[in-house]
């Protein structure tokens, strides 16, 4: 599905990774691990075409991709550290807008279900600015239920989530991979999940 060849990236004159190559197949859950500063977030941002690598190629379904490739963007769901939740909009407005940008209208049933699963059903009309960090995270994760994207790139999706929501998210990831999608994510939590491939980035962060 996604093939990375010879990826080199540097930050502040220091090589984060050199000649990194790997493949992500349909149905694969890939966890990127590594110490702080190893370049996990940079790698995810590079895969999402937000960051331009020094060298190397990323191809999606056999085609090399550039920043803003409409086909790739259509098949990609990226949730970063900053999840893009507008404090001045209500929970529902946020979700509606995020879906519209991907070119869809949120279907009512899965939305209701997801909000209930995450314990947000009573907060649909409250401003996102009044929510806690964990709740904001959950609003962002609701996108997982409403997207048709096949490749998910999630940066620290488990951060700030309570136990129940962690379970929900895990189940969500499995469902997606079961349906032929792929997920690339980072996490500091020691996950005891089955069927996950890991890619560990070097000890670069502790060199200096």
């Amino acid at each position: 599905m996604l093939t990375v060849t010879g990826l080199c990236t540097e930050r502040d004159e220091r090589a984060l990774f050199e000649n990194l190559s790997f493949t992500v197949n349909k149905g694969q859950l890939l966890q990127i691990t590594g110490p702080n500063g190893a370049g996990k977030t940079t790698l995810l941002r590079t895969l999402a075409t937000l960051y331009q690598p020094e060298a190397g190629q990323i191809s999606f379904e056999g085609r090399s991709i550039n920043a803003g490739d409409p086909n790739y963007c259509q098949s990609l769901l990226y949730i970063g550290h900053q999840a893009g939740i507008k404090a001045g909009l209500t929970v529902k407005e946020n979700i509606t807008w995020l879906c519209a940008l991907q070119g869809g209208v949120p279907a009512a049933a899965p939305l209701r279900e997801g909000l209930r699963a995450l314990g947000l059903q009573d907060m649909q009309h409250s401003l996102a600015g009044s929510l806690s960090a964990g709740q904001k995270r959950k609003v962002a994760l609701t996108r997982l239920l409403l997207t048709r994207a096949s490749l998910w790139i999630l940066d620290e999706p488990f951060t700030a989530l309570d136990k129940a929501s962690c379970d929900w998210l895990t189940q969500c990831l499995y469902q997606h991979s079961g349906a032929g999608g792929a997920v690339i994510f980072t996490s500091h939590q020691a996950l005891t999940l089955e069927g996950i491939t890991t890619l560990s980035l070097g000890e670069g962060g502790h060199d200096e």
């Binding site: 999402a48 075409t49 937000l50 920043a67 803003g68 409409p70 086909n71 963007c73 259509q74 990609l76 990226y78 970063g80 550290h81 900053q82 999840a83 893009g84 939740i85 507008k86 404090a87 995020l98 940008l101 991907q102 070119g103």
Partner: peptide, 16 residues
């Protein structure tokens, strides 16, 4: 840019 919605805008399939 602060709340990350700019990144979402950049990753939208619509022409930027």
């Amino acid at each position: 840019h602060q709340d990350g919605s700019l990144e979402i805008l950049l990753l939208s399939p619509q022409p930027l």
